[in-house]
């Protein structure tokens, strides 16, 4: 379970998070929605320890993120980055098996490669892709490789940062379906940030709407369309009229 309690974060004079409270039960898929610059990425990076909150508490399975042993803590996580964040000096399989080639999860090279190829197949990529470099792949394929890397060490918690950004609608659908399948199959806790409503409907068990540094609305995805929160309504309908200023 992931719990954020009254998390604040400012950059200079700009307060990005102004008291975020959010609970993601174990095995659930939470999608955080919100406009650009509302603090979605900062929220996600705060949980991972990539950004240090100014105040508040973040607990993962009851353990304070700031006090946890970093390596052990991070070994439970997998993350798919918005742009893939693949290491371009390495081949695809070395990217996927990165965690399995070093550190506490280190395996023999041949075994790590086998696992990497297996994970690549799981995300719908042929084994011949394994020896290519990320720059030789299309955007959709890079996303899949990123997804394979995120699940390579069978993490208990997976984060997805804008998983469909920059992809065509069909490839977005493929990635959404893959994410949903993998999360269910692995029984992992998932936290996704996106502003793609198709993704939300495909991936989420629960939805949280982040606006102005706080969670404006949260609830099951099935209740989202019937909710009368004006911020959520405006975001779902994509209207320029409403409490969320179109010009920010």
């Amino acid at each position: 379970m992931i719990e954020l309690r009254d998390v604040h974060k400012s950059f200079g004079d700009h307060a990005v998070l102004r008291g975020v409270n959010l609970t993601i039960p174990k095995g659930e898929s939470m999608v955080i929605i919100g406009g650009s610059g509302t603090g979605k990425s900062v929220t996600l990076k705060s949980v991972l320890g990539l950004v240090k909150p100014d105040s508040g508490t973040i607990l993962v399975d009851g353990e304070d993120v700031e006090k946890a042993h970093r390596d052990t803590f991070l070994s439970h996580f997998g993350m798919l980055f918005q742009g893939g964040a693949l290491f371009d000096s390495m081949t695809v399989w070395e990217n996927v098996a990165f965690r399995l080639l070093r550190g506490s999860l280190k395996r023999p090279k041949a075994e790590a490669r086998e696992i990497a190829i297996d994970k690549l197949r799981r995300v719908g990529l042929r084994s011949k892709v394994a020896d290519q470099f990320p720059a030789e792949l299309s955007g959709g394929m890079q996303k899949r490789v990123g997804l394979a890397r995120a699940i390579a060490a069978d993490p208990q918690i997976i984060f997805f940062d804008e998983p469909t950004t920059g992809l065509d609608p069909i490839m977005s659908g493929v990635i959404n379906d893959l994410i949903r399948e993998i999360v269910v199959e692995m029984g992992a806790t998932a936290m996704t940030i996106t502003h793609d409503m198709t993704s939300v409907r495909a991936i989420a068990d629960k939805v949280a709407m982040l606006h102005d540094g706080v969670i404006q609305w949260t609830g099951p995805v099935g209740e989202m369309d019937a909710a009368d929160d004006p911020y959520l309504r405006q975001f779902i309908t994509g209207s320029a009229e409403g409490p969320i200023e179109a010009v920010r």
Partner: peptide, 16 residues
Amino acid sequence: TMKVTEQIDALVTLST
């Protein structure tokens, strides 16, 4: 470039 493309963040999440 690794920092701008989040590869440094990716390293951290991969316990490196």
